[in-house]
Every structure is written in C-alpha cells, then in structure tokens.
Simulated assay, not measured.
Amino acid sequence: METNNSTFKAFRVEEISGKFASSIQTMPMESLAGEGLLIRVHYSSLNYKDALSASGNKGVTRKYPHTPGIDAVGTVVESPSAEFAVGDSVIVTSYDLGMNTNGGFGEYIRVPADWALKLPKNMSMQEAMIYGTAGLTAGMSVWQLSKLLKPEDGKVIVSGATGGVGSLSVSILSKLGYEVLAITGKASEEDYLKRLGAREIILRQDFENLDAKPLLKPSYAGGIDTVGGLILQNIIKSTQPMGAITCCGNVASPKLDLTVFPFILRGISLIGIDSQNFPMKLRKIVWEKLANEWKPDTLMDTFDQINLDQLQGKIDLMLKGELRKRTLVEMISEG
C-alpha cells in the first residue's frame, strides 16, 4: 500500500453478549486489503443510518464489528482506475458505504471506484460533508421538484425542517427564490429556520391535527417530505392541483392512509427519492449545482464540527431526536 501508515483509527461498533458498544480502535491497514480506491478520509458526517448502525440495527448493518459512516471525503491513496489519480480529492456517499462496508468513521476506506466522484472545483472538503448524503438528498429533491414547480407557482412546504435533509432543503429552495414553509416539532427553532430562509413556521402537532377528510384546502404548490406518515398524508391532501411532493424518509411512519383522490382529482405527483442508488451521472449534476448556484449563503451556519471522541454523544442525541444541525466529523484536517 502506498501509505506510510501501518495502522489507522476508526470508530468501531461491536456486539458483545447481545449488546452493542462503540470505541475508538486502532486498526491494521491490512483490514482494508482488496481492490478499489484506497482513500484517506478527511471528513465524514453523521446521518440517521449511522446512528442506527451504531446501535446495532441489523436492518442497516448485518455483521459486527463494523465501522459506520455513510459519507466520506478525502484524497486517493491507491487507485486501480484510470478515472482517479493518487492525490485526487473525492466524495463517497451512500451505496453500501458505512452499512455493510466499513465507512467514513475510519481514517481510511476502501471502496469501488464507481462509488466515488471528484470533489467539485468550487467546493471545499468541509462543505462537501456539511452536505453529505443529507445535502445530496436535499439536492435531488429540489432537482426533481424544480422540474415541475417554479417559484411563482406558490408556496413550498418542507417537513422535518431542523433535520439534515430538511434544513438544507429549506436553504436551497430559499436561495432559488421559493417561498418556503417549514414544519418542525421544535418551537424553539423558529429563529434558526427563518435565518435559513423559511418564511413561516408550522408546528408539527398542528399539522398532524388537521381534518381527516380525503382532501384538504389546497394551500401549497408542493413540498419536500423527510418523515413520512401523517405529515406526508396531510401535505399530499393540502397540495394544489398539478402540484408535486418528494418523499425520502419514514422516521414518522412508512405507512400512508390515503384515498386516491389527491392524485386523480388534483393530479398530484408524488416522487420518491432514493439517495442510496441515485445514478452517478445524475449525482454529478446535483453536486455541481450544490457547489455553485444552489450553495446556500447560510451553509456554514448549518453544522457543528466534532472529532471521533465526541461522536457517540452526538449519536445518542440523534436517536433521541434532540440533534440540531448537521454534525461534521473531522478525521484529518484539510490544512
């Protein structure tokens, strides 16, 4: 291996007597032997899938011990691919990284070359991981929504607005001139969401308690839903004719209790977002937009930066629903 290191540090999760525990461990470089790109990770970021993996969710990670981290940005150390040279700065998000392939909470990762893309010119490594999978998902949602809706078509509503995908969706939509309404369960975050660009804040409990009719007053041109369940139901029922909604999460519920009326009487479009297997040619388009015309002016206000030693505490907060902002994990400093 073309590295002077024989070991590296990683946040490892182990199953011991049916219980799961994490620790910072020193790993041999031989544990990353194989084909693909060897990447020295500079930054990762914390996502809900990482928190699930770290708590032993076998639906996310089948075998332990394991290193979570579905996001990584860093420099290529070894490359069998003509597309990437040693020293290139690259982003790797989703696919199987951090799920059943050891992920970005280690100082090095080994991944297939077709999981990586070059860091856009107008984006720092830190910015790339402030975005991470959450930013890519928000970008994909905005990209799909903007095909069908223009800012002049009306208000756009975003659920889970203080979460990673939600907060970045609010910021990007506002940057593009949309009038954004933000749904949150955290009344204390109103000022924060307005700084990101939300024009109006709607409390989750109020939105969940809307009438149970098959159709509600058409109030929104469309929306970006990150939570599923009753919130998504009410967004769909409240959307104007020919409106569009994207959905990417199910933390509230994977189930919808709906009639077909919003779809056949109002022509509503419901668009699913799959960030894990989003085609690479389209990822490159979205990442370029995130690096340039979509980059929010408030991007640097949307994260907290930590090191590996602080990671478990942030995971605990995320699982309790108490985490605000994106969590950036510094592995190796850029400068």
Score class of each variant (00 low, 15 high):
L168T: 00
L168V: 01
L168W: 06
L168S: 01
S169G: 06
S169D: 07
V170A: 00
V170L: 02
S171R: 09
I172Q: 10
L173Y: 06
K175M: 03
K175S: 00
G177W: 12
Y178Q: 14
Y178A: 13
E179C: 10
V180C: 04
V180D: 14
L181M: 07
L181R: 12
A182P: 15
A182F: 13
A182S: 14
A182R: 08
I183M: 05
I183P: 04
T184Y: 04
K186D: 10
S188W: 09
E189M: 11
E189C: 12
E189S: 08
E189T: 00
E190C: 13
D191K: 14
L193V: 12
L193Y: 13
L193P: 14
K194F: 06
K194G: 03
K194D: 10
R195G: 01
R195M: 06
G197D: 15
E200W: 10
E200F: 02
E200H: 15
E200K: 14
I202Y: 03
L203W: 09
R204K: 09
R204Q: 04
Q205W: 08
Q205S: 14
D206N: 13
D206L: 05
F207Y: 15
F207T: 04
N209P: 14
N209F: 07
L210W: 06
A212I: 08
A212N: 15
A212C: 07
K213H: 02
K213Q: 10
P214R: 04
L216G: 05
L216V: 05
K217I: 00
K217E: 06
P218M: 01
S219M: 06
S219E: 01
S219F: 03
Y220N: 02
A221R: 03
A221V: 02
G222N: 00
G223D: 11
I224E: 03
D225R: 12
D225P: 07
D225L: 11
T226I: 09
V227E: 09
V227S: 14
G228A: 04
G228I: 01
G229E: 02
L230V: 09
L230C: 05
L232M: 10
L232F: 14
L232D: 14
Q233Y: 04
I235Q: 08
I235T: 12
I236F: 08
I236N: 12
S238D: 00
S238Q: 08
S238F: 02
T239S: 11
T239E: 08
T239N: 07
T239Q: 08
T239R: 04
Q240W: 01
Q240G: 02
Q240L: 01
P241Q: 01
G243D: 05
A244L: 05
C247V: 07
C247R: 00
G249I: 03
G249A: 02
N250D: 09
V251E: 04
V251H: 09
V251C: 08
V251A: 12
A252L: 05
S253M: 10
S253G: 08
S253K: 02
S253W: 11
P254D: 11
P254K: 13
K255F: 15
K255I: 10
K255S: 07
L258P: 15
V260H: 14
V260M: 13
F261V: 04
P262I: 00
I264F: 11
L265V: 00
L265E: 00
L265Q: 07
R266I: 00
G267W: 15
G267N: 11
G267V: 05
I268T: 06
I268M: 11
I268G: 10
